[in-house]
């Protein structure tokens, strides 16, 4: 079994339902996020368009975070999920340095690394990840990539040519796909990021024990 995610960006309307559902389900502390939806505006008035991109851990098959973790706190589950053992983590932040997608953060309450686990605890009870359940337009498609009859496999088959991963050049082999995405959504260098457009405008950077 190899669990994977696919987000159809044609469908996503940026409601942030998934973001909030994740926060609640996993009790993600204030100022940190396992899943977030980034808004990027493209074009100049009146020809403008707003894009929405949910961003979470990709559960890479060749995960740099797992490789760099000195104590195997980050580890693979049999279903392909890259999981984290917070009791074992020593908080070295090696994984934060290694993840090319900025998907890992240091939990300010436990002072250990944390990230999206594809809701591994829910999957263990045969439930879908909470973001999948919350999405009103079924833009999040989740399932077994090894099973050609699963929803996600069928979706990938049907949208061949329009299925992408983030930063494929990093060789991480993400198990998280996007349909209908372009550089603007998937490559952080393709958009300008000024200050003052954060969810909380005064909070431009999260300082979690890093030492500048």
């Amino acid at each position: 079994m190899q669990l994977g995610f696919l987000v159809d960006l044609h469908l996503c309307m940026g409601c942030k339902g998934c973001e909030i559902a994740c926060k609640v389900e996993n009790e993600v502390p204030l100022s940190t996020w396992r899943l977030r939806v980034k808004y990027v505006d493209v074009g100049a008035f009146p020809e403008t368009k707003r894009t929405f991109t949910p961003l979470r851990c990709n559960h890479c098959a060749n995960a740099p975070c797992e490789r760099i973790c000195p104590v195997s706190a980050l580890h693979y589950l049999e279903n392909g999920i890259v999981n984290i053992d917070k009791e074992r983590c020593i908080g070295c932040a090696g994984c934060v340095m290694a993840c090319p997608y900025g998907a890992i953060y240091i939990d300010p309450q436990t002072q250990t690394a944390d990230k999206c686990t594809y809701c591994a605890h829910r999957i263990a009870s045969s439930m879908m990840p909470s973001c999948v359940v919350a999405c009103p337009v079924e833009a999040n498609i989740f399932g077994d990539l090894d099973d050609p009859t699963s929803n996600i496999s069928k979706y990938i088959q049907q949208h061949q040519g329009d299925v992408q991963v983030r930063k494929p050049e990093k060789g991480t082999d993400p198990h998280h796909f996007y349909v209908g995405g372009g550089n603007v959504q998937l490559n952080p260098l393709a958009s300008f990021r000024g200050e003052g457009h954060n969810l909380f405008n005064n909070l431009t950077h999260i300082h979690l024990g890093g030492h500048h």
């Binding site: 977030r36 980034k38 808004y39 505006d41 500048h212």
Partner: peptide
């Protein structure tokens, strides 16, 4: 290079969460 497309696309992040700051610093 996608960076060079910025002038054409005028792509601007308009809503997102704050990003992590420097983790490996002077220590």
């Amino acid at each position: 290079m996608v960076h060079e497309t910025l002038a054409a696309t005028n792509a601007i992040v308009v809503l997102d969460v704050a990003l992590p700051s420097v983790f490996w610093g002077w220590i």
